[in-house]
Design a protein around this nucleic acid. Structure first.
Lengths: 111, 111
DNA sequence: GCCTACATATAGCCAGCCTACATGTAGGCT
DNA sequence: AGCCTACATGTAGGCTGGCTATATGTAGGC
């Protein structure tokens, strides 16, 4: 998958994957891979900065935890994040409708 | 529409709008607006460089014409462009399936 | 001791869409 | 004449955000 097309959709992906349950960065990457059937291999250099940005904005909150001797920063959706996710979903629908509509509009000129 | 999300889809949009008939830059912008129901207002600074890039790659070819005293550069799809458009369409389908799938996968964890 | 998986983090690169500006014609209104 | 809007093309430079490359450290298998 060409990385360019992820532009502007990372936030939606991250918020969406955290909707069900809180996860730490590494697990988020794995979750994205699983849910996309292996199509999404988002590098750590994309995910970690994005998570921090989303926390700074207020859509996510995090706590440190130590599991099996390893430190994890576990992220969860805030109320604002949950609301934002709704917005991201409707923006996604509009986006696909608009672009998809143009791509499909290859029939004979109307009227 | 957040400009970021157009990233990586401009080529598909331009090729698609030229599939039916050759058009000049200004008309392409209008066609995108019409076909998107007004949602797509792509600025000239995006379209003209993109058209030149697509011509350089070989997906488009152009000729100058004078209509009503105004000069137009009319672009048309090449065979390579037509082939590329097919690729862009299937890439679009895959893209929407992958992202859309993740955004919708908010149910309880499977099995 | 070495390698892989797990886990987080940052500096700097780069593609490509956008803003702002430059240039010019045609035609309407005053 | 002067001004404005629509038509029409083009470029320089900026910005943004995802990616590459790298650094750091633990746990466990071979």
């Amino acid at each position: 998958m060409n990385p360019d097309v992820l532009r502007g959709h990372m936030d939606a992906l991250l918020l969406s994957v955290l909707e069900r349950e809180p996860l730490h960065g590494y697990a988020i990457i794995e979750a994205l891979q699983e849910r996309s059937g292996g199509a999404l291999n988002v590098p750590t250099g994309t995910v970690y900065p994005a998570l921090r940005r989303l926390e700074r904005i207020g859509y996510l909150a995090s706590e440190w935890a130590t599991v099996g001797g390893r430190k994890r920063r576990t992220y969860r959706l805030t109320d604002a994040g949950r609301k934002q996710l709704e917005g991201e979903r409707s923006a996604w629908r509009e986006f696909t409708n608009v672009i998809g509509g143009v791509l499909r509009a290859n029939a004979v000129a109307p009227g």
